Computed example of a mutant assay.
Amino acid sequence: MNFASVRIITDDVDRLVEFYERVLGVSAERPAPVFAEFILPSCTLAIGHSQTGQLFGAGSVVAAQNRSVIIEFLVDDVDAEYARLKSAVDDWVQEPTAMPWGNRSVLFRDPDGNLVNLFKPVTEEAIKRFSGRR
């Protein structure tokens, strides 16, 4: 089994696409006005309009209600990403910080309130844990 993607359901696809294009530095593929994908080497981040949620069963998904999942991206330089995105992000949760499991992380919320973590392993143990994942 291979992990394929994470999909964010939103009421404003264009706003989230614009936000993640800035964060990720890549353009989204837009096969339909209600759907977009960021196809990255390690994963795909999909964004679907709340109208598409009905295709998964009435009431199965609700836009902008997530408070338990963190969308994480492995980056080369956490501090440089923080500086680059400082003016683009409205809701910073945590400035660059060393985490107890060996990563340096910065956390913020996207326009729908989803938590995003940009991180880099910095301790020897964390670097070993992530070797081969890029």
Rank of each mutant, 00 (worst) to 15 (best):
K120F: 10
A63R: 10
Q51R: 14
A58S: 15
H49V: 01
K86C: 09
Q54F: 14
D77Y: 08
R104C: 10
P121I: 00
K128A: 15
E72W: 06
N117Q: 04
V61R: 09
A98N: 12
G59D: 06
N66A: 11
Q51L: 11
V61W: 02
F56P: 00
R109M: 03
A80F: 08
V78Q: 05
P111K: 08
Q54E: 14
A98P: 03
I70P: 03
S60G: 01
N103P: 03
F73R: 11
S50K: 04
K120N: 13
A80Q: 13
G53F: 06
T97R: 11
E124F: 09
G102D: 08
L107V: 15
V89Q: 11
V78K: 04
E72M: 03
P121V: 02
D79I: 07
H49L: 12
W92N: 04
F56I: 05
P111S: 10
S60Y: 01
A88C: 04
R104Y: 07
L85I: 05
K120M: 11
V116R: 06
K120C: 10
N117S: 09
R104F: 06
P96S: 03
D79L: 10
D110A: 07
M99A: 15
R67T: 14
P121F: 02
I71W: 09
V62G: 00
Y82T: 11
V75C: 11
S105M: 15
D110V: 05
G53C: 07
I127C: 10
G113A: 08
T52M: 03
M99R: 04
A83C: 00
Y82G: 08
G59E: 12
V89T: 09
V93D: 08
T52Y: 05
S68L: 09
M99G: 00
N114P: 04
W101Y: 09
E72T: 11
A80N: 06
A126H: 02
D91H: 13
Y82E: 08
E72Y: 06
V122H: 08
K86N: 11
A64M: 06
N117V: 02
A63H: 03
W92M: 02
V89E: 14
G53Y: 00
S50R: 05
M99T: 05
R84M: 01
R67E: 08
A126T: 03
W92K: 04
F108Y: 05
R67I: 09
L107K: 13
D91C: 13
I70H: 07
E81P: 11
L107P: 00
N114A: 12
L115V: 14
E124Y: 06
S105W: 06
L74R: 12
V106A: 15
S87V: 13
I71F: 09
P100A: 05
A83Q: 11
A58Q: 10
K128F: 12
N66V: 02
D90S: 14
L55Y: 01
D79K: 12
D91P: 00
